[in-house]
């Protein structure tokens, strides 16, 4: 008897959990769509910038810019790690953080100390747990990163790089490859790797009228490229987070469904057993009387 009541209770709570996870799944799906559209909308800007840089460097000839220089003697670097503010997203935060730690250890192996700029509550608390140092932290980016939020982070990195304080800057985030595949990556954003060589090489050279001259234009364009790339990383991370949550919550909902099924079966069996017992009791009692 007691067993039955326990089963009913458990089934009820699993049902409630399923309700919650299903809602979260639906929300994540909606947010994923929105975030995905936003991420797609950022692409033209980045692509156009890359095209301009390619055109310009062709016109400017030898490109020598502080953002392209490598500082080999500097034993400091910066890493921006993008995690979520919230959990319940499957392995999302864990795998980004694992990649971040691997990257940090690898850099430390080369004698390079890293300043970590942690984005997202989950990453902050994980690093606190590891007792690793976090130089700067940002929270509340959410699923709609805005350019104004990302710009100061990028500008700070550019500043420090130009002053020669850091040898490189990486960003660790979950790269969105497709709805079914995301991969945690550590991408170098400084020094800028000239993508100019590959890519739009085929485009016919255009005789531009420049104002100011190409060199000065590049001075402006390259930092803009860094900012755009970082912004894109933020967008990618936002999309990946929603996908991860969507998948995790779908799995949780399915698992809860299975569990409810199993519990129901167990409950029915218990009920059946009890009825049989009662019947046996009655029959036994009747037999004893006659």
């Amino acid at each position: 008897m007691a067993n039955r009541r326990v089963l009913v209770k458990r089934r009820k709570s699993v049902r409630n959990i399923r309700k919650i996870t299903r809602t979260m799944q639906l929300i994540a799906t909606a947010r994923f769509q929105a975030a995905f559209n936003r991420a797609v909308a950022t692409r033209p800007y980045t692509e156009k910038l890359a095209e301009l840089v390619a055109d310009l460097s062709r016109a400017a000839g030898d490109v020598d810019h502080p953002l392209l220089k490598t500082h080999e003697d500097v034993k400091r670097a910066a890493v921006v790690v993008l995690t979520a503010d919230r959990g319940l997203a499957g392995g999302y935060n864990a795998s980004v953080l694992r990649t971040a730690v691997t990257h940090l250890d690898q850099q430390a192996g080369q004698g390079i100390a890293n300043d970590v700029h942690m984005v997202g509550k989950k990453g902050i608390s994980y690093f606190r747990f590891l007792r690793r140092e976090v130089a700067e932290q940002t929270t509340g980016i959410g699923d709609k990163p805005r350019f104004e939020q990302v710009e100061p982070i990028a500008n700070a990195l550019i500043d420090r790089f130009v002053r020669g304080e850091i040898a490189s800057a990486h960003v660790v985030y979950m790269k969105f490859l497709s709805a079914g595949q995301q991969r945690p990556v550590a991408v170098q954003i400084l020094p800028l790797k000239p993508e100019t060589a590959e890519g739009k090489e085929a485009a016919k050279p255009v005789e531009y009228e420049f104002s100011p001259d190409p060199q000065q234009l590049l001075d402006e364009l390259l930092p803009a490229t860094v900012r755009a790339r970082l912004f894109q990383a933020f967008n990618d991370a936002a999309v990946s987070e929603q996908v991860a949550r969507m998948v995790a919550m779908k799995a949780a909902t399915d698992a809860a469904g299975d569990m409810i099924k199993a519990l129901t079966r167990e409950y029915n069996r218990a009920r059946q057993t009890q009825i049989t017992m009662e019947l046996l009791d009655i029959v036994g009692g009747a037999n004893a009387l006659s």
Binding site: D55, F210, L217
Partner: peptide
């Protein structure tokens, strides 16, 4: 608005790259 003043564009303008 270009960096040093306003620039007007009509169709078939020669290629330009301005700040």
């Amino acid at each position: 608005p270009a960096w040093d003043g306003e620039v007007g564009i009509l169709h078939d303008r020669a290629p330009l790259l301005f700040k």
